[in-house]
Nucleic acid binder design. Structure first.
Length: 553
RNA sequence: GCGCCAGUAGCUCAGUUGGAUAGAGCAACGGACUUCUAAUCCGUAGGCCGAGGGUUCGAAUCCUUCCUGGCGCGCCA
């Protein structure tokens, strides 16, 4: 609809040039058309006259006058007005808004989906927490945002894969194995000295007990073998926890990618030799370096240390190179904001390989400040005093938790007060949105009990929706698809949350002012049609973001 | 010292990519349940958009210099 109007304006502009009422001949690439904040300013508004003022050397209002004359009588528009410094405001025929309702009812679950992504393959890698302990609240935010970004991209027509990168190689896994082994020996009565940098948390002891119960024979193993066994066991168990936690959140990964497998398959050496061939790496001080400075990094980065071991960066380079080998045109990484210093070297690496900077998009999730009764709560795996994601989900509920994490832009910090979140039960905005959905369902139930049929497209007379607020509701429903596109292209799922809240607010307000089931059958039918379109959009958005759609509350 | 993110109502945050009179939710105050669910609605009050300068028809939004807070700057992960 917006596009139709855009074309009409473009045609009018060309007509003006043809007839000589305007003479600059300038046609902007894209005519800006927006929905004004103030409904008095019409359904759509363009700044075209102001934009042309310079080229035309005329006052904006004068140009607007000429254009609006050319637009008069256009069948799309009910009214064309000039306002303010030179805005041209359009009010569309009501039938266009009625058509939106028909579209929604006809498309059902598909309404809001589109093909702007054009099937482009895109990967979202998120969470990717080290498998050395349970997920905490900060991981939860990344999990929800990553999942929502993926969902919104899917809705916009991208082919999306959700991937979890498992850091099952490297020092932190050694530390895990060592920590478990020490606790195991402790359980067997040995006096041990637990190292400062070991994992102190209680779950390590649990893992040790479990290992003990399973009677894994470590007696004849060397120290290194024992640590290795404990590490493998620990990683496998912790991954089970993580998967279960994510499942409780309704999050499913298409693919779990093992870092260790990169080494086992020789991928790291293979990719590193490609870099060498391209002259992107060099040896110095017995170490192998990547020339990231040539592509904007502060300093070159080490791939292989002088002792022959690989850096974390090395496997990350190989991993990301392979992502593109797997055919993804764009790759999104969701990271904690404390890793932001890592971005320049990753981008530099890709630039060296001839990728555009946008091919890798890193979403930084800012910190979650965990509070309890307003007091900061210290987190850290080693301190052993942290709140797990599972605890929070159990306390607050998955829906509320997801909603809360999605309410803010991911690049601003988030205060999460556990007591507050628990209290929120009835205050939480998620219920506000879900309640709107439940209310429509309730109306439907009442209609059914009274023997009122649900309206069918062929029978319903939408011109009975005469109230300004009814039209406003339809107009807002029309903006759902563009909201998704905006959220997808900008990786900003919070836009959908704000849309939901606004839609629910408009619906609740309408509900309190007007009855749907009234004496006059035709009006009842039209209003039922409208509120069920609202329900449809609420349900589509809630489902897309992984939240439930209760029919009763 | 360098870099990234943020700074908007008492609090938590939006702000359609530069548009018209800057908006919500909490918190405060006052109203609305014999009518489809009051987990709702209606109203009142609340602002130097961190500060200064610049760009233009027009700036919370873009550029610049500061100030404040958070986070990073290893041959750690």
């Amino acid at each position: 609809m917006k596009e139709q109007l855009r074309h009409a304006i473009q045609a009018a502009l060309k007509e003006c040039y043809r007839t000589g009422t305007l003479d600059s001949g300038v046609v902007p690439d894209e005519i800006q058309l927006e929905v004004p904040k103030n409904p008095d300013h019409g359904d759509f508004s363009t700044n075209l006259a102001m934009a042309l003022a310079k080229a035309e050397r005329k006052a904006p209002r004068q140009i607007a006058e000429v254009l609006s004359v050319a637009m008069q009588g256009n069948p799309l528009c009910d009214k064309v007005e000039i306002a303010g410094p030179g805005f041209i405001n359009f009010r569309l025929q009501a039938t266009h808004w009625y058509d939106v309702l028909h579209q929604i009812m006809q498309q059902g679950e598909q309404y809001g989906r589109c093909q702007v992504g054009n099937g482009k393959k895109i990967q979202v890698e998120f969470v990717s927490a080290n498998p050395t302990g349970p997920l905490h609240i900060g991981h939860g935010r990344g999990a929800v945002v990553g999942d929502a970004v993926a969902a919104v991209l899917q809705a916009a027509g991208f082919e999306v894969q959700r991937e979890y990168y498992v850091n099952d190689a490297g020092n932190q896994v050694q530390t895990l194995g060592n920590s478990i082994l020490l606790r195991l020996r402790e359980l067997q009565g040995e006096a041990i000295v637990f190292p400062e940098d070991g994992y102190q948390a209680g779950y390590i002891v649990d893992l040790a007990k479990q290992l003990l119960a399973e009677q894994v024979g470590l007696a004849n193993a060397t120290e290194a073998e024992a640590v290795e066994t404990c590490a493998r066991f620990g990683v496998a168990e912790v991954l089970k926890w993580i998967e279960a936690d994510l499942k409780a959140f309704g999050i499913h990964f298409d693919h779990w990618y093992s870092e260790r497998s990169l080494y086992d398959r020789g991928m790291v050496d293979q990719e590193l030799s490609k870099l060498k061939e391209k002259g992107l790496s060099y040896e110095q001080d017995n170490a192998l370096w990547l020339r990231t400075t040539e592509y904007g990094d502060d300093k070159d980065r080490v791939l292989i240390k002088s002792d022959g071991s690989y850096t974390y960066f090395a496997s990350d380079v190989a991993y990301h190179m392979e992502k593109f080998d797997r055919g993804f045109e764009r790759v999104i990484d969701v990271w904690g904001a404390d890793h932001h210093g890592y971005i320049p070297r990753m981008k530099a690496m890709l630039a060296g390989l001839g990728h555009a900077p946008e091919d890798l998009e890193v979403l930084l999730i800012q910190m979650v400040n965990l509070l309890r009764d307003g007091q900061p709560f210290v987190m850290g795996k080693r301190s052993g005093n942290f709140v797990t994601l599972r605890e929070v989900i159990n306390e607050v509920g998955s829906d509320a938790c997801r909603f809360f994490f999605l309410m803010r832009r991911c690049d601003s910090q988030l205060d999460f007060d556990l007591e507050l979140a628990k209290q929120q039960n009835s205050d939480n905005p998620v219920y506000y949105v879900q309640y709107a959905h439940a209310r429509v369902c309730s109306i439907n139930r009442n209609a059914e009990e009274s023997g009122i049929p649900l309206p069918r497209r062929e029978d319903v007379d939408l011109s009975r929706l005469e109230l300004a607020e009814e039209l406003a509701l339809a107009k807002y429903l029309a903006r759902y698809p563009e909201t998704i596109v905006g959220a997808a292209l900008n990786y900003e799922p919070h836009r959908v949350i704000f849309y939901l809240q606004e839609l629910a607010a408009q619906f609740h307000s309408y509900y309190n002012r007007q009855r749907v089931l009234v004496d006059e059958a035709a009006i009842t039918q039209a209003r039922l049609y409208l509120v069920n379109a609202v329900r449809r959009v609420l349900a589509n958005a809630l489902k897309m973001l992984g939240m439930s759609t209760p029919e009763q509350m």
